[in-house]
Computed example of a mutant assay.
Amino acid sequence: MSENHLIHMSEDKSDLGKVEISPEVIEIIAGIAASELDGVAMLRGNFASGVAERLGRKSSHGKGVKVDLGDDGVNIEVFLITNYGVSIPDVCHKVQENIVQTLKNMTAINVLSVDVHVVGVHFEDKNESEAPKKEQGI
């Protein structure tokens, strides 16, 4: 693994230069890929990532995603909250597939594993469920 913690893309035969991808970019891509699926309420970071986000040092798109660089590829951990009433195994499987497919399409990086940690369930607020009834005159 390199000292500057950048992922070096495979060298092609062109002499245009080299491509390096920062782990933060992978976190953002994986975070967006996970949060765009139905059944995922939100991604959940830890205390340190929340402080870094408030200080403007980290984007909120990468919150809840941890990337470990290896010699063979990357290992990704995702911490998320699901919506109430969805099949958690199905949502987690879709998250894994979407992250791997998105990273393969955008970066051609070898993803070794995507570990999904469900850390909570989001229940619908009482006000959200009553709002449509009030508008309909019920």
Rank of each mutant, 00 (worst) to 15 (best):
S87Y: 06
N4Y: 07
A52D: 09
S49D: 15
E27D: 06
I109K: 01
V95H: 00
Y84D: 12
K63E: 15
I28K: 13
G56F: 08
S35T: 10
N46P: 00
T82I: 12
V25C: 12
I76N: 00
A48D: 14
H122M: 07
V86D: 05
G31K: 03
E124W: 04
K66P: 00
E53W: 11
L6M: 15
A131N: 13
L55S: 06
D90G: 07
P23Q: 09
E3N: 13
D15Q: 14
V65C: 03
K58G: 02
S60T: 04
V19K: 12
G62L: 02
G17A: 09
I81D: 08
S60I: 05
S22E: 14
V121L: 09
S35E: 10
E130D: 13
N83G: 04
G64T: 02
M1E: 14
S129M: 11
S113F: 02
G17D: 05
K66Y: 11
N75Y: 08
D115A: 05
S129L: 13
V121Y: 07
M9N: 07
F47G: 09
S129R: 14
E20V: 12
H122W: 03
R54A: 13
D38S: 15
S60K: 10
K94S: 11
R57N: 06
D15G: 12
I7Q: 06
H8G: 06
E130G: 07
S22G: 03
C92G: 12
G17R: 07
N4K: 12
A48M: 11
H61C: 07
V51P: 03
A41Q: 06
S2E: 14
V121S: 05
V95P: 00
V51F: 11
N46Y: 00
S10K: 15
V119S: 10
G62M: 02
K134G: 03
S129T: 13
E36C: 11
